[in-house]
């Protein structure tokens, strides 16, 4: 570590007690905090946290005193760092750590650091005891630990993690929901593009009306009575085709003039259901 840069860090001697991976991870976490101009105290081994990050400068002893009196400011972060050279699927808290996390609530942060790549991936969680799902695992009546499985939350996020490093874990499920919607929209838009191309190949006039009407494309042939009301459905998986009530009624009303175009534009290994 450069000495000048970390001049203001208290308890730097505790860093030497750690093993190499932990030391590296803590350094990464400290750098993250320093970006926000925060002051750092490194905690000794055996505490429920590795780093304390504050806006104002405090001593370790004053922080302990404040904790005892329950007068700790919301701006203080107690950070536990988990590091791994592989992908992190889960992390666990001991009983003591878990109850500490519960008592200080939002002030408890967990940084998961994956150091596999050159550019480490950091994921931050705040108040994990309240925000994340966990399993209680009893080793013995006296010894328990709390397992937080983040695999399910992050399964889809491997690549995104690298680029958006500062997303908190708690908001990822919501982001995933919106991303699914976006994916759907990409597929739908592409499907409409393809449908338009296909119609133009047949020398038909095409008007996109998806925002105004209950169908997507109005296609008119050479004969003005030759009209097609086209509903385009993009399919990413083998999910059933879904029509809303109004779309369904519209289709029923227009009978032969109503068409559904199913476009499967996502490259998959093959659609099983159609194998004979």
């Amino acid at each position: 570590m450069e000495k000048n840069k970390y001049e203001n860090i208290k308890g730097i001697k505790h860093l030497e007690e750690r093993n190499e991976i932990e030391r590296k991870a803590i350094e990464i976490a400290i750098n993250e905090e320093l970006k926000e101009n925060r002051k750092i105290i490194i905690a000794p081994i055996g505490e429920c946290y590795d780093i304390i990050s504050t806006k104002e400068s405090y001593n370790f002893i004053t922080i302990k005193e404040m904790l005892r009196k329950s007068q700790i400011s919301i701006n203080v972060r107690f950070i536990k760092v988990y590091a791994s050279e592989d992908k992190i699927d889960s992390f666990k808290l001991t009983r003591r750590e878990f109850y500490f996390a519960k008592t200080i609530g939002k002030r408890y942060w967990i940084y998961l650091i994956n150091m596999k790549n050159k550019k480490p991936i950091i994921l931050k969680t705040r108040s994990p005891a309240y925000k994340l799902k966990y399993k209680v695992i009893e080793v013995s009546p006296e010894e328990k630990y709390y397992l937080f499985n983040i695999h399910k939350l992050l399964g889809k996020f491997e690549k995104v993690e690298e680029d958006i490093r500062h997303i908190e874990v708690k908001s990822i499920p919501k982001i995933l929901k919106i991303i699914k919607l976006i994916e759907k929209r990409i597929i739908e838009r592409k499907a409409i593009e393809i449908a338009i191309e296909e119609e133009r190949k047949e020398n038909r006039k095409v008007i996109v009306v998806s925002e105004k009407e209950h169908y997507d494309i109005l296609s008119i042939g050479n004969n003005p009575e030759d009209i097609r009301y086209i509903e385009v459905k993009g399919m990413s998986k083998t999910k059933p085709i879904l029509l809303k009530e109004k779309e369904f009624d519209f289709g029923k009303e227009h009978g032969n003039k109503y068409w559904i175009y199913l476009v499967n534009i996502i490259e998959n290994k093959g659609i099983k259901i159609f194998k004979n």
Binding site: I194, L243, G255, Y258, W259, I260, Y261, N264, I271
Partner: peptide
């Protein structure tokens, strides 16, 4: 009619021709 691979299907009058749930 048998369909082996689903790429791009155009279905005419699907509401009346197919069974919907």
């Amino acid at each position: 009619m048998k369909i082996k691979e689903l790429k791009f299907l155009k279905i005419k009058d699907p509401i009346n021709k197919l069974e919907w749930k």
